[in-house]
Design a protein around this nucleic acid. Structure first.
Lengths: 199, 199
DNA sequence: GTCTATATTGCGATAGAC
DNA sequence: GTCTATCGCAATATAGAC
């Protein structure tokens, strides 16, 4: 567990179950399907993780660890709008790099497992709190309109970028959501968001 | 099926299974649990709906029928920004009136069942197309900045309002998301969205 | 239409050999 | 650490009595 070779059953189980859990949900996948996809024996799931739930928790921990760099937005310097753009850019890059994260994210929000309270909710609250702090800095610097509710504003920003990816299975053939357009998307969201809150 | 009394097994099964499917997902609920909650016999699910999947499809049809009034935005008169505000207001009212719809919405986007293609996707595309048409009208009337991509703009608007409700299980104790604040929320989203796209 | 009883299949977990 | 075999239970669906 501490020193993990590259191809043992443990890491194979995590890697193989990640897309299965993401696409079908926790209750939509069976342990036999997971073991087969990982090329591991069925009993290895209980051996390494204590059961299917433990494996799912390990997968979720790995997924939501990728949100932690967002918390460093607090420490870096730069004006608030620049930080919001960094947030957008990091979010897009993260979803493009890992196409499963958003499904765990929205899957747990929609049909929570015990992992929601222990893993998902703290991760989301950390990101939202960081965005709220960034907004507060902009208000102190008198860069943003004071009439706006900070929570409404940052949830709006997060909603614009996250919902864009969430809707992709439905809208992908109506609108062009290819990665080549990501830079244009970020620019447009920044324009909509920015010209709304900048004084 | 055509003339349904108030308290027959058929409508009880739909009413009782709706919150169960919404909160646990299709694979998270069993037919025994549904039958017990509806006060109906287990075999009535197959009798009326041909099985669990048929019941789920009936529930989803009922849920997504509530999206159809959005399509009438096309016909009514009024400036595009006024229509966008109507869309926001109708969306908020719909989620407050029916707390299950959003979970079916995001649940099917995240872990699609066969109903996604037949029911959910067409409903979503209808709403997005209506918003796109409304945006086009604003562009023709030279009310909106031409530099913006219509799809990016309307997905941003939909994302702001939908994500606000989706995040509620995680952010509800950090930010005030009580219904009493809905009017303020709508006003803030309209301000952020409006001052971004109005020329 | 509604019931009981059951058929069939799949599930997650584990005992015990190696 | 990995395997086979199996336990115990839950799943959905249905046959057939009333």
């Amino acid at each position: 567990m501490l020193t993990t070779p590259e191809n043992d059953s443990r890491s194979n189980l995590i890697a193989a179950s990640t897309p299965l859990f993401a696409e079908k949900g926790f209750n939509g996948v069976g342990v036999r399907e997971i073991a087969k996809a990982a090329g591991a024996n069925l009993s290895m799931i209980s051996y390494y993780f204590g059961g299917k739930e433990g494996l799912y928790a390990a997968v979720l921990n790995q997924q939501f660890d990728t949100l932690k760099p967002v918390l460093e937005l607090k420490e870096i310097d730069g004006d608030p709008m620049g930080k919001f753009e960094l947030y957008l850019r990091a979010t897009v890059a993260r979803y493009r790099m890992n196409p499963h994260l958003l499904r765990f994210y929205t899957g747990e929000l929609t049909n929570p497992t015990p992992c929601f309270e222990s893993i998902v909710k703290p991760a989301i609250l950390g990101v939202v709190q960081t965005l709220l702090d960034t907004f507060s800095m902009g208000v102190e610097q008198r860069r943003f309109r004071e009439a706006l509710n900070p929570a409404d504003a940052v949830l709006a920003l997060a909603g614009m970028i996250n919902f864009y990816f969430l809707l992709e299975p439905a809208t992908g053939e109506l609108v062009d959501q290819a990665p080549e357009r990501d830079e244009e998307l970020i620019r447009h969201i920044m324009e909509i968001f920015g010209k709304g809150i900048l004084r």
